[in-house]
Structures are given as structure tokens and as C-alpha cells.
Amino acid sequence: MKIHIDEDKCTGHGVCEAIREDVFEVGDDGVAHLITEELTEDMREDLQDACDQCPTQALRLEG
């Protein structure tokens, strides 16, 4: 399972960070970054939520 962040679309709303602060963090560049590589199956629902709720449709869950 992987998350792809489209940095051209992301504007750092932080919706993903609000859903999973242990996975996402908006950086000083104003764009969301992954702060862990370890995405586990029990996170899937939250990660899908983060993708669905992203205001700029910048997140994609793969795998």
C-alpha cells in the first residue's frame, strides 16, 4: 500500500494531517508530506478518507 501526493495540486489544507497526524504533515513548503513509510492495513480506511476528503484531490492510495 502506497500514498501518492501530487505536489502540484496540494496546497497544504492539512485535512489529511487532521485525519492521520502520524502519517501526514504539511511542511514548510506548504505541501503535505508522508512522515512514515510504514503504512499498514489497519490504516486503510483512514487513508482512503484522507484521499477522498482532500480538497484539491492531490492524494491517491495505491495497492
Binding site: D8, E17, A18, E25, D28, G30
Partner: peptide
């Protein structure tokens, strides 16, 4: 966009949940 996205990113960090 694209100007909106670039300008918004300048300050978005200041308003995040963390």
C-alpha cells in the same frame, strides 16, 4: 490555480492542525 495554489502554500503551514 495555478497562481492560487502557489500563493496559498506560502502560508498554509501556519494553519495546520499540528
Amino acid at each position: 490555480p495555478p497562481r492560487h495554489s502557489k500563493l496559498r502554500r506560502l502560508i498554509s503551514k501556519a494553519f495546520t492542525p499540528k
